[in-house]
Design a protein around this nucleic acid. Structure first.
Lengths: 187, 187
DNA sequence: ATTATCTATAGATCTATAGATAATGC
DNA sequence: ATTATCTATAGATCTATAGATAATGC
């Protein structure tokens, strides 16, 4: 029944990961604590041994998920000759659009976060800031210009993904992704 | 107790408008039928005389709200010398960011819509399509290029607004709006 | 007679807690 | 002895419906 400290730490991670997936797929309000715990193969009541509240988990899962996303961008940028293009191409893939549960937290949850408690917004802001820095580094050139371009690029990527997912028509959805891709790459 | 047919029609409109505001402010899941009816000064139970379900109202309020937004863009474009600039400037205002309940449905609800029933997505898609057409008209020039630019512009506008609202820091929020404004206008 | 609206409530959630249980770790 | 987890449940939602009420519209 009881787990060791190490197992408990692993369980905690399982819950954070399950939450990250479910939140991105169904939103904060659309995901219940019971569902998260079920996905982590634990019982509902055990949740509150690990976290003070659902809100705390929302913030933690955003923090971790965004950090992973940023690290992934960094790796993409380091591996390629054209770092910005590598990130843009990867981001705007249909497989990303069709798997929000494993994709970008900004695109999956930004409009939810705007309505969340200050704690969650703070974590989200810090993560976004880090992403801007990574992207500005990938863009290179003048600091100010790179930063501006990083901000507008993330905005465009996130907007494209959000709209491509909301749309009911696969052709239109692809057209959005393609239009943004060509806009960002031929800039 | 009972209203005339005209009053009932007016009440229905009141409910649709109240829902449009509350949905944009708190999301679909964050808004209850009881709250909507209270905002419209009617009782909870009366809701189901006008609408089959909350989902039906979600679709109706999106349909109406997006149509109004598109009509507004059309007016902005018609009045100004530089139609695209007029739309971009208006969209990216801080007053828009701070009043989602009266603002763009795409920015307020796009990531919610992605998780809604097909019916809601269909309505949203039709509205987005109409917005693309209006913006492409405002951009002018070659049809294909105008359409592509319309798609990428709406994506960038929506992404900027969504991120600017999620962010906890007013300076960063303004910086996002400003970076996107300068990117869209100096293109 | 019809029907728009109201009150009241059934039934299904959902978050969070209380108390029991059993394995860990001193 | 401590504590991670479990079962069970309190209390607060939320959607949707049932049935009553009273004003409209024929």
């Amino acid at each position: 029944m009881k787990s060791s400290r190490e197992q408990a730490a692993r369980n905690r991670e399982l819950v954070v990961n399950a939450a990250g997936q479910l939140f991105r797929e169904r939103g904060f309000e659309g995901t219940s604590v019971a569902e998260i715990m079920k996905a982590a193969d634990l019982t509902h009541g055990g949740f509150y041994c690990h976290f003070k509240s659902k809100t705390e988990l929302a913030a933690l899962s955003c923090e971790q998920g965004i950090a992973r996303g940023t690290a992934f961008w960094q790796r993409l940028a380091a591996e390629r000759k054209s770092p910005l293009r590598a990130i843009v191409d990867h981001y705007l893939r249909e497989s990303h659009r069709d798997a929000p549960e494993n994709g970008c937290f900004f695109a999956a949850l930004a409009s939810d976060v705007a309505r969340q408690e200050p704690y969650v917004k703070r974590v989200f802001t810090a993560g976004l800031r880090a992403s801007f820095d990574v992207l500005a580094g990938a863009i290179g050139g003048g600091k100010k210009a790179a930063r501006r371009r990083a901000l507008s690029t993330v905005s465009e990527l996130v907007g494209a993904m959000v709209l491509a997912r909301a749309v009911d028509d696969d052709d239109l959805s692809k057209e959005i992704l393609e239009a943004v891709r060509s806009d960002l790459i031929n800039q």
